[in-house]
C-alpha cells in the first residue's frame, strides 16, 4: 500500500513534469505547426543557468533561468523558424532536429562533455512522512509547482486579451489574422510561454539530478514530444494530457516492472505510442478529425 502510494506520487510528479514540457511544445505547434525538438535545448540552457547561479540564491537563479529560456526560445523563432513559414510540419521537425543537434554541440564547446553539478534546492531532496506514508518531498513539490503554473497559465489564456489572442490563433491562425490579431505577436507569445515552461521543467529536473550535461534536455523532449503527439498536439490541453500520460506510464513501469525488464520500460512506452498513433492518429484526446498538417 505504502509502496503503491509512493509510486503513484512519483508517477504523478513525472507526469506533471512531462506535461509541462509537452504543453510548451503544444503551445507553439498550435500556432505555427512546429513540433519543436529543440525545446529540449531550451530546457538545457535554463538548467545550466540554474546550476551556475544557484549559489546566488533561488531568487536570482530562477528569474535568470526563466529569462534565458524565454530569450533562447525567441531567438530560435526569429533566427530560424520565422524564416520557414511556408515549410511543412515534417520539414519544420527536421529543422528543429538539426537545431537541437547544433545547440548540443555548442554546449559541448562551451561547457564540455562532462556534466556540471551543483546541489540545487537540496532541502527538497528529502522524504516526507504523511500519516505513516513516506513520499519524496521533491515529487510533492513538483506536483505543486506544476499545478501553480497550470492554474496561472489557464487564467492567462482564458482571462487576458493576450491569452485569448493566442487561443484564437491556435484555433484558426488564418481567421485570427483576418480578425486583426497580429501574427508576430501571438507567435512571439507562444515561444515566450514555452520558454517559461522550459525553465520550470529545468528547475524540477535539476533538483532531481543536480547535474547538467549537453544532452540534458533530449530524453525529456523525446518523451514530451511523443506525449504531445499522442495526446493531440494541435490542442493545447491534448498535448498537456498526452505528456502527463507518457510521464505517468514511464514512471509506473519503472516502479513495477520486474528488475530484469525495467531496462526496457522506455521501449514499452514507445511501442505503446506506435499503437496509439495507429489507432488514433490525431491524438487520444481529440474527438474525430485529423491534425491539420
Amino acid at each position: 500500500m505504502n509502496q503503491l502510494i509512493q509510486s503513484l506520487v512519483d508517477a504523478i510528479s513525472a507526469g506533471a513534469t512531462l506535461g509541462l514540457a509537452a504543453l510548451a511544445i503544444g503551445l507553439v505547434f498550435g500556432v505555427i505547426r512546429l513540433a519543436n525538438f529543440a525545446q529540449g535545448e531550451i530546457i538545457t540552457a535554463s538548467a545550466y543557468s540554474i546550476i551556475f547561479t544557484w549559489q546566488l540564491g533561488w531568487y536570482v537563479a530562477i528569474p535568470i533561468a526563466i529569462l534565458i529560456g524565454v530569450i533562447l526560445s525567441l531567438l530560435m523563432e526569429v533566427g530560424v523558424f520565422s524564416r520557414m513559414r511556408m515549410a511543412t510540419p515534417a520539414t519544420l521537425l527536421v529543422a528543429s532536429f538539426g537545431l537541437s543537434f547544433l545547440l548540443q554541440r555548442v554546449y559541448e564547446l562551451f561547457f564540455g562533455n562532462n556534466v556540471r553539478t551543483a546541489p540545487v534546492a537540496p532541502e527538497l531532496a528529502q522524504s516526507l512522512e504523511i500519516g505513516g506514508i513516506r513520499v519524496q518531498l521533491l515529487s510533492v513539490a513538483t506536483i505543486i509547482i506544476a499545478a501553480v503554473i497550470l492554474v496561472a497559465l489557464v487564467q492567462f489564456l482564458n482571462r487576458s486579451i493576450w491569452g485569448l489572442q493566442l487561443q484564437a490563433a491556435a484555433a484558426d491562425f488564418r481567421i485570427a489574422r483576418l480578425v486583426g490579431i497580429p501574427a508576430s505577436r501571438v507567435i512571439g507569445l507562444s515561444f515566450a510561454l514555452s520558454g517559461i515552461l522550459a525553465a520550470a521543467v529545468a528547475f524540477v529536473s535539476t533538483v532531481k539530478t543536480g547535474a547538467v550535461g549537453p544532452p540534458f534536455g533530449v530524453p525529456i523532449v523525446i518523451l514530451a514530444l511523443i506525449g504531445a503527439v499522442i495526446g493531440g498536439i494541435d490542442k493545447i490541453y491534448g498535448a498537456l494530457a498526452g505528456g502527463f500520460l507518457v510521464g505517468f506510464a514511464t514512471s509506473m513501469l519503472a516502479s513495477w516492472l520486474p528488475s530484469d525488464m525495467s531496462n526496457f520500460r522506455d521501449a514499452y512506452v514507445f511501442l505503446l505510442v506506435i499503437i496509439v498513433l495507429i489507432f488514433r492518429p490525431s491524438g487520444l484526446l481529440v474527438r474525430g478529425g485529423t491534425v491539420r498538417t
Binding site: 515534417a90 521537425l93 531496462n263 526496457f264 522506455d266 521501449a267 506506435i274 498513433l277 491534425v291 498538417t293
Partner: peptide, 28 residues
C-alpha cells in the same frame, strides 16, 4: 502498420521505432 500514417505522425512513429530498437539492442 506504420505506413498508414502521414506527416508528423509518421515522423514520430518511426522515431519511436528507432528508440525501441535502440533500447532492445542496448539492454537485451
Amino acid at each position: 502498420v506504420l505506413m498508414r500514417l502521414n506527416g508528423l505522425q509518421a515522423g514520430i512513429a518511426t522515431f519511436a521505432l528507432l528508440l525501441v530498437v535502440g533500447q532492445v539492442l542496448t539492454y537485451w
